[in-house]
Structure formats: structure tokens, C-alpha cells
Amino acid sequence: MSELTDDMKAKIREHFGHYPTKQAITLPALHMVQDAKRCVSNKAIEEIADMLELAPSQINDTLSFYGYFRTEDAPTGEKRVWICRSLPCMLRGGEELLAELCERWGIQPGQTTADGKVTLELAECLGACDGAPCMLLGDELSLRMTADSVEEHVKG
């Protein structure tokens, strides 16, 4: 069984003409796999490397640098919530919001709820300081969050 679906492979190939090197498609390919599988397995790394004519270690080198990607031993839950704790959010209750969510969900930052539904992450500045404290759910920002409104967003 291939980890990369035919659709993913076709999408990776679509990128070939956009860059002078195949290595430049590393991040787009990793995003495709992470979004679909909630982690990037070792097998997926090998398959991406094969398509991009690289060694698997080169893909892993890049993957391990960025905070966004998860390896196969630590997939995210169905939803992934990032709470910002950089200065503008910290000044308006970002850390208290994070602590409240840890308490309610019985997990620490970086962990996933026991039912596998939600992963809670610490974020550095998400770029929505006009609505601090803010949250990233998937790749959508939400502003002026409370623990209740975070839970509503996660359910919705």
C-alpha cells in the first residue's frame, strides 16, 4: 500500500513546473501528507524522497526543523488547536486561556485528548494581535477567544 494517494502524487507533480528544483516541493508535499494523515510516516517520507529524487534523510532533515509536522509516533487528534502565548496575547490572557483549556481537557500543551478529538498546541505570535488572545484551528485564525468560545469552535 502506498502512503501517498494517486491524487497526492498528481498534486506533487503539478508543482514540478513551478520550481527549478524538485527539492523545493518538500514543504508542499509534507503539508499534503500532514493535512491528510495528521502525521508524516516514515514510509511517506521515503515516497516523497523518491518522487523528489532526494534521500529520505533530506526530507526528514527539513521535516524535523519545522514545528508544524508530526512524525508517525505522535499524530495529532482530529482537530488541532493552537493558542498564542506571545506578548500581545499574554498581556490579554493568552496564558490563562491555555491553562484553563489544559484543565478542562485534562492534557498538557502538545498532547491530544484521550478520545483523540483535539490536540492542544502552544503557538508563538499568530499575527492576530488585534484580537488577542487568538487561536488557530486548522489553518483558520479566530480572534478574542475565551475557553468557552474555543470549545464552541472545536465542536462546530
Binding site: H18, Y19, T21, Q23, A24, I25, T26, L27, P28, L30, H31, L52, D61, T62, F65, Y66, G67, Y68, F69, A123, E124, C125
Partner: peptide
Amino acid sequence: LDIHLHRGACAYICGEETGLIESLEGKRA
């Protein structure tokens, strides 16, 4: 002219112009 969108992966250092270039090339930034 062609414009291609390229998404990062949550690393502040990609805002440094040569970090950005390394990241665009598919490497650690």
C-alpha cells in the same frame, strides 16, 4: 510573469530573507 504561492510551516526565522530562501528551496530555514 508567473506568481506561485508557497506556504511556510510555523518558523519565525523564515522571515529572515535568506532563511526564507532556504525554506523555499525545501531545506531547514
